[in-house]
Amino acid sequence: MALSALSRMVGRNQAYLGQFVSRGSPRVLPERERRMLADFLAIDEALLGAPTPPDDVVAVPWLAVKAAAGVGQVPDERVLRTERLPRAALRGAGVAPEAASVIAVTGESMAPTLRDGDRLLVDASARRLAARGGIYVVRRGDTVLVKRLVPHGDMVEIRSDNPLWPVEQVPLAEIEVIGRATLLLRRL
């Protein structure tokens, strides 16, 4: 895609990004435009001049993975960009920065708890199912799902919060727990 088309995409005149690349004007892209471009190009905002996060902010990798709240999707596990989250939010969620990642939810099987387009903070160090269960991101075969899991010995109950979706009982060995969903990131 040409720079002129990208300029129009962010709501600027067609020479805007050409001037940014060739002349360095503006010196820094505004956050909204930088984020739109990073999302569209599937790159980290740092490549477009995003400032380094201060010490009280953690740059958490936002993966291209879409955890299906539905039948599942084959994952694309590249890092799209980083999501800057306050260190206190990670501490409050009980997630170590090195175990944290952000992924998107797609589908409606976990509604109303999780909606299509929501983002989740996933704790990859929490791969062991809690005795009373919880919401986890799991790999089942070639697909990645986000579901409510309840362990029953060597079996696991896979539940959707949407009552229209069936409850499944499968051997625990059939799934790989990627991590626990610890924080819902929803844009209002």
Rank of each mutant, 00 (worst) to 15 (best):
P166K: 02
A59P: 07
P166Y: 07
P26H: 06
L183C: 08
H152Q: 07
A181H: 01
D161Y: 11
G18F: 04
I43G: 07
I135N: 02
V74R: 14
A69I: 03
P53F: 12
P166N: 05
R132A: 15
R81S: 15
R34F: 15
G24F: 09
G153S: 00
R34A: 13
L145C: 11
N162T: 06
P166T: 05
L48V: 07
T106H: 07
I103Y: 06
A131K: 10
I158Q: 06
P97D: 08
P86V: 12
R78N: 12
L85E: 04
A104M: 15
G70E: 01
P30N: 06
R23E: 15
R128M: 14
D76N: 12
A111E: 10
V28M: 08
P30D: 15
A64R: 04
W165M: 13
V144F: 05
R27C: 11
V146L: 05
I43A: 08
S160A: 09
Q73W: 06
T113I: 13
S7Q: 11
P171W: 12
I175T: 04
V137K: 00
G49P: 14
A64V: 07
L48F: 12
R128T: 15
P97M: 09
K147C: 07
S22C: 10
G70V: 02
G179I: 02
T182D: 00
N13L: 04
R32N: 14
T82I: 14
L41T: 02
A181R: 01
P53H: 12
V170R: 00
R91H: 07
L129P: 10
I175A: 01
M9D: 10
I103W: 05
P26Y: 08
P61Y: 07
R12C: 15
I178S: 02
R148T: 10
K66S: 03
M155R: 05
L121Y: 00
L188I: 13
V57T: 14
Y136T: 03
P54M: 02
A96S: 05
V95G: 02
N162I: 12
R27A: 13
I135R: 00
A42M: 08
A89K: 03
V95P: 03
A88W: 05
M9F: 10
P30I: 09
L37G: 05
V10I: 13
P171F: 09
V138N: 02
L183S: 05
V137E: 02
A50S: 13
V28D: 12
H152D: 15
D116N: 13
K66I: 08
G153E: 06
R127F: 07
Q14E: 05
G117W: 10
R119H: 10
V167E: 09
D118Q: 02
M110N: 10
R78E: 11
R32Y: 12
E176M: 00
Y136K: 00
V177Y: 04
G134S: 06
A15G: 03
R8P: 15
R91S: 02
R87E: 09
Q14K: 04
A2V: 08
M155A: 05
R127I: 10
L145Q: 05
A50N: 11
R8K: 15
T52I: 10
G24C: 07
D123R: 01
V60T: 05
L120M: 13
L120Q: 08
A69M: 04
P163A: 10
R119V: 10
Q19E: 03
G107T: 03
